[in-house]
């Protein structure tokens, strides 16, 4: 799997700048997670741990919103091309979810004061992702009011996994911080 990720990384870095390397590497990691999650069995359609979210949020915190957009979009596009779901309903759902969570992250980056920490960011992003997916599913594929019965369950899953990935991001940043500290 890591070989796979490296291959994707190579294919996206033709003219290389350090910035490109970084985005590609992180995107490749996110794509790998995305693909692994896509083959995991799911109790309910739409319920996935969303661990690729971890990468997006970490990138957002470390390198800002614009880089997070690139990583997130690359993950959705390349990930779906690799799985073979490009432009399919599955793709439309993760695409709209990604757009929604990026929109919320943009708002979060404009918050006054200390703003949101890793857990808050992951949580709002996960919930926005779920709302985005849900409304796309409702509008495009299943325009049926019965779908709303699933919303509480889906949102519960989003909250739980949002908090879990928030904790992961927090400890990730913690470790990174230590390493950075040592290097300096």
């Amino acid at each position: 799997m890591s070989e796979h990720a490296n291959n994707s990384a190579d294919s996206t870095t033709i003219k290389t700048t350090p910035d490109d390397h970084l985005v590609a590497w992180l995107a490749a990691l996110a794509i790998t997670i995305h693909i692994i999650e896509s083959v995991l069995p799911s109790p309910l359609p739409g319920v996935k741990p969303g661990l690729a979210n971890v990468i997006t949020i970490a990138v957002f915190i470390l390198y800002g919103w614009r880089t997070a957009v690139w990583v997130s979009m690359l993950r959705v596009l390349v990930g779906s091309i690799l799985i073979g779901t490009f432009l399919s309903p599955t793709f439309m759902l993760s695409f709209s979810g990604a757009i929604a969570s990026l929109a919320v992250l943009w708002l979060a980056s404009h918050l006054p004061g200390a703003g949101l920490g890793p857990i808050g960011l992951c949580l709002v992003a996960a919930m926005a992702h779920m709302f985005g997916q849900f409304y796309t599913a409702y509008l495009l594929f299943i325009p049926h009011d019965g779908l709303f019965k699933l919303l509480p369950l889906l949102m519960t899953a989003a909250v739980i996994f949002g908090i879990i990935s928030g904790i992961i991001v927090r400890s990730m940043l913690h470790h990174l911080g230590k390493r950075h500290g040592q290097e300096k």
């Binding site: 004061g113 949101l116 808050g120 949580l123 949102m155 909250v159």
Partner: peptide, 15 residues
Amino acid sequence: TRADYCVVLFAALLL
């Protein structure tokens, strides 16, 4: 942060 608590509270009420 304080904003984090607000988000968690929001989620806790939303569900």
